[in-house]
């Protein structure tokens, strides 16, 4: 029985109880693999929406996209893009600050990031209210609100993560060692991902 256990696990584990350990690659950490699968699933989700957007755009009359009567607020969306990109710089600043044991910089960076993210959402909701068309107004309205709304939902989730990071920062939970500021680093990576996705959405919907 013991030899069978050795054959199965490759070593004798006298202290192990319960089900056997799941097989794990020696090359990639379980946590990293989990984040990788999450990011890949997110990319596929956004990819499905982008595929829908470009499909609708191709099958529609290319000379009238967006349809006549619909004017997208490119300037406001551009300002909103600048706001969101700025928030990536502030969250990066926050993380660099805590790496140098600068707690004041961490709190300043995280607070600014949260405010910029909230500003982005506020402007986007304001844009929805005043844009002049609804998701019911044809394929363009439907895909516009779906794509930007999907991204807005991700910003909202990012804001929730940043809220927890802010609370913990003000309580002094973070430190310069990497293991002591994972609670800032992981939301930061997610925030950069959300930022990258917005740049692609902005390019596809508002610019080209």
């Amino acid at each position: 029985m013991e030899s069978a256990s050795i054959a199965a696990h490759g070593h004798v584990d006298d202290h192990h109880h319960g089900p056997p350990e799941a097989h794990q690659s020696a090359r990639i950490d379980r946590t990293v693999l989990g984040i990788l699968l999450f990011i890949l699933s997110e990319i596929m989700l956004f990819g499905a929406f982008f595929a829908s957007y470009f499909f609708l755009r191709v099958v529609a009359d290319p000379t009238s996209w967006p349809p006549e009567g619909i004017e997208l607020p490119v300037l406001i969306a551009g300002i909103n893009t600048a706001v969101l990109i700025s928030s990536s710089f502030t969250v990066h600043y926050a993380l660099e600050a805590i790496k140098h044991n600068n707690h004041r910089g961490l709190k300043l960076g995280l607070t600014l990031t949260w405010l910029l993210g909230a500003t982005f959402l506020f402007i986007q909701i304001n844009e929805y209210v005043h844009i002049g068309f609804t998701p019911r107004d044809g394929a363009f309205g439907s895909i516009f609100f779906s794509l930007t709304g999907l991204h807005g939902a991700h910003v909202f989730v990012g804001l929730l993560l940043l809220t927890f990071a802010n609370i913990r920062a003000y309580r002094g939970h973070f430190g310069p060692e990497q293991k002591d500021h994972l609670g800032v680093e992981v939301p930061s990576i997610y925030w950069h991902f959300v930022d990258i996705m917005w740049i692609i959405v902005f390019l596809a919907v508002y610019i080209i």
Partner: peptide, 23 residues
């Protein structure tokens, strides 16, 4: 970019530059 925030930030910069050229 999924291991280090600084790498994710570098990727963001690359995407911004690429987006400017695409635009």
């Amino acid at each position: 970019p999924i291991r280090r925030e600084s790498a994710a930030f570098s990727w963001l910069i690359v995407v911004i530059i690429a987006a400017v050229t695409i635009g």
